[in-house]
Amino acid sequence: MTSDKIQTWESIIPEVKSWKESGEKVVFTNGCFDILHLGHADYLEKSRSLGDRLIVGVNTDASVRKLKGPERPVNPEYARARLLAALEFVDAVILFDEDTPFELISHVIPDILVKGDDYKIENIVGADIVIKHGGEVKTINLVDGFSTTGIIGKIKTHNK
């Protein structure tokens, strides 16, 4: 079942160790992924193409509320994690409760850390840890016109 891809902080470590011992490159990215859309699918597929395994850190509901406000998330954390786990190019999904994925990145130590090109590498949380351990930090071009905030805005406009 794809729901088996939803990992805990404890269960991901032996998985990552096994992948790395097999010579596989582990890619990590993160986000809220509140309403899954084309921009997310494109970004995650491109992220996976940079390595052999893709781990996606997903903000918990409490974390999303702190970042995006009391009306978010639209979808609860398990639903968001489950949809991501169903994507063939996602190998593992891990929820994190903090404002940033710094602790999770420190825990996983991926070979490649990825964010969208709306970030500068020097501003990407966890970049220092990944680089210190010999890894790489990369940005991915985002698909114009797709964002969860934009989709929510369109829905609100059409429902007035």
Rank of each mutant, 00 (worst) to 15 (best):
Ser3Leu: 15
Ser3Asp: 10
Ser3Gln: 10
Lys5Thr: 05
Thr8Val: 01
Trp9Met: 11
Ser11Met: 06
Ile12Ala: 10
Ile12Ser: 11
Ile13Met: 13
Pro14Gln: 09
Pro14Tyr: 06
Val16Arg: 13
Val16Gln: 07
Lys17Ile: 12
Ser18Leu: 15
Trp19Phe: 08
Ser22Met: 14
Gly23His: 04
Glu24His: 12
Val26Asn: 08
Val27Pro: 02
Thr29Glu: 07
Thr29Lys: 06
Asn30Glu: 09
Asn30His: 08
Ile35Ala: 08
Ile35Lys: 01
Leu36Phe: 03
Gly39Val: 01
His40Asn: 13
Asp42Trp: 11
Tyr43Gly: 06
Lys46Met: 09
Arg48Phe: 12
Arg48Glu: 12
Ser49Lys: 15
Ser49Leu: 13
Leu50Val: 07
Leu50Ala: 11
Leu50Gln: 08
Leu50Asp: 10
Arg53His: 04
Gly57Pro: 06
Val58Arg: 02
Val58Ala: 10
Val58Met: 05
Asn59Ala: 11
Asn59Phe: 00
Asn59His: 12
Thr60Lys: 09
Asp61Trp: 04
Asp61Met: 05
Asp61Gln: 06
Ala62Asp: 14
Ser63Leu: 01
Val64Ile: 14
Arg65Phe: 02
Arg65Ser: 11
Lys66Gln: 11
Lys66Tyr: 02
Leu67Asp: 01
Lys68His: 00
Gly69Tyr: 09
Gly69Met: 02
Glu71Thr: 10
Arg72Pro: 01
Pro73Leu: 09
Val74Met: 07
Pro76Asn: 11
Pro76Arg: 13
Glu77Gly: 05
Arg82Asn: 14
Arg82Glu: 15
Arg82Ala: 15
Leu83Met: 15
Leu83Asn: 11
Leu83Gly: 12
Leu87Glu: 04
Leu87Gly: 06
Phe89Asp: 12
Val90Thr: 10
Val90Asp: 03
Asp91Leu: 05
Ala92Trp: 02
Val93Phe: 01
Val93Ile: 06
Leu95Asn: 06
Asp97Met: 04
Glu98Thr: 09
Thr100Met: 00
Thr100Gln: 08
Pro101Gln: 04
Phe102Met: 13
Phe102Asn: 14
Leu104Asn: 01
Leu104Ser: 09
Ile105Tyr: 04
Ser106Lys: 15
His107Gln: 13
Val108Trp: 05
Ile109Ala: 05
Asp111Leu: 05
Asp111Tyr: 02
Leu113Glu: 07
Val114Cys: 03
Lys115Val: 00
Lys115Trp: 03
Gly116Pro: 00
Asp117Ser: 14
Asp117Lys: 09
Asp117Glu: 04
Asp117Gly: 10
Asp118Glu: 07
Tyr119Leu: 10
Tyr119Arg: 09
Tyr119Phe: 14
Ile121His: 04
Val130Phe: 03
Ile131Leu: 12
His133Thr: 04
Gly134Pro: 01
Gly135Thr: 00
Gly135Asn: 03
Glu136Asn: 11
Glu136Ser: 12
Glu136Gly: 03
Lys138Thr: 00
Lys138Glu: 11
Thr139His: 05
Asn141Ile: 12
Asn141Arg: 14
Asn141His: 14
Asn141Gln: 15
Leu142Gln: 09
Asp144Thr: 09
Asp144Phe: 02
Gly145Trp: 00
Phe146Met: 11
Phe146Gly: 03
Thr149Pro: 00
Gly150Thr: 02
Gly150Arg: 10
Ile151Lys: 05
Ile152Val: 15
Gly153Gln: 14
Lys154Gly: 08
Lys156Ser: 13
Thr157Leu: 13
Asn159Leu: 15
Lys160Ser: 13
